[in-house]
């Protein structure tokens, strides 16, 4: 075969050379054909459409429902209940279940620290860009979410209606009752799914999915409990069965 590409005299025709060996995936190996398109105009149009949808939705909401406005601020009359903005109601709800330093400072700080360090705990590239990474990841998410949806509302309800911490007041030191006791209980609730998943030799990603799901669904449960289910006196009520003319939606 007299092909120029395979000429034996490579010194003159060779146009490539080995420069360096790098321990990394190369740019194009093991990839399918370049499945990309020009951003313009597709992305610009999509963003314009999204803008229109968001603005129209907001406009319809704003035409339909007025922002709440109560009487002028009066430091001498407390509202009942006095609630933080809805996104902090999870924190305010936590305060009902233990020592403030544990519930409103330590736990949220640990949560934020965990969330920030997620990419450093799970630094594999496995499953990047795939929802739930795998079928197993999807199952873990689903079962963990169901477990928390069952356990956390129960915890909020039982801790409020049968306050063991109040009944044992005076018999045990306050610190044990308000800080150690709730911390152990929370530890067990959060730890159980982790131990369960641990038996199936999880990847770092699956451990992180378990813990994140526990924390996220718990945050949702506590926020909803505080925002929707707490009425006058910060007691638990059904949102549609609040005493007086109080409606949790007026707090938005």
């Amino acid at each position: 075969m007299n092909n120029e590409s395979f000429s034996k005299d490579t010194s003159k025709t060779k146009t490539y050379s080995l420069v360096e060996l790098v321990k990394a995936p190369t740019t194009m190996t093991d990839r399918g054909p370049d499945n990309s398109i020009f951003s313009f105009p597709v992305v610009a149009i999509m963003e314009l459409l999204l803008t229109l949808i968001v603005v129209v939705l907001l406009l319809m909401m704003s035409l339909g429902v007025n922002a709440p406005l109560e009487e002028i601020a009066n430091p001498n009359t407390t509202t009942d209940p006095a609630k933080a903005p809805w996104y902090f109601m999870g924190l305010q709800e936590m305060l009902e279940h233990g020592h403030p330093t544990l519930m409103a400072v330590l736990m949220p700080t640990l949560m934020v620290l965990f969330v920030v360090s997620i990419p450093y705990i799970d630094n594999t590239r496995e499953g990047s860009g795939i929802w739930f990474t795998s079928k197993r990841g999807k199952r873990i998410t689903l079962y963990t979410a169901l477990y928390i949806l069952l356990v956390m509302p129960l915890y909020v309800y039982l801790d409020t209606t049968f306050p063991a911490r109040e009944m044992l007041r005076g018999k045990l030191p306050d610190f044990v009752l308000q800080a150690v006791f709730p911390a152990i209980l929370m530890g067990i609730i959060v730890g159980l799914p982790l131990i369960f998943v641990w038996r199936y030799k999880p990847s770092p990603r699956e451990m992180v999915i378990t813990l994140f799901t526990v924390l996220f669904v718990s945050a949702v449960v506590f926020t909803l409990a505080g925002f929707l289910f707490r009425g006058p006196g910060f007691e638990l009520f059904w949102p549609w069965d609040m005493p007086g003319n109080y409606s949790p939606w007026n707090n938005l």
Partner: peptide
């Protein structure tokens, strides 16, 4: 969102910020 919540200066704003900032004092 939290800082904007105070600006209307009604009962809702006043007590929400009072409750919200008192949480910080537990540290």
């Amino acid at each position: 969102s939290f800082t904007g919540y105070l600006l209307p200066w009604d009962q809702l704003a006043y007590w929400a910020i009072t409750v919200g900032t008192s949480v910080a004092a537990y540290e």
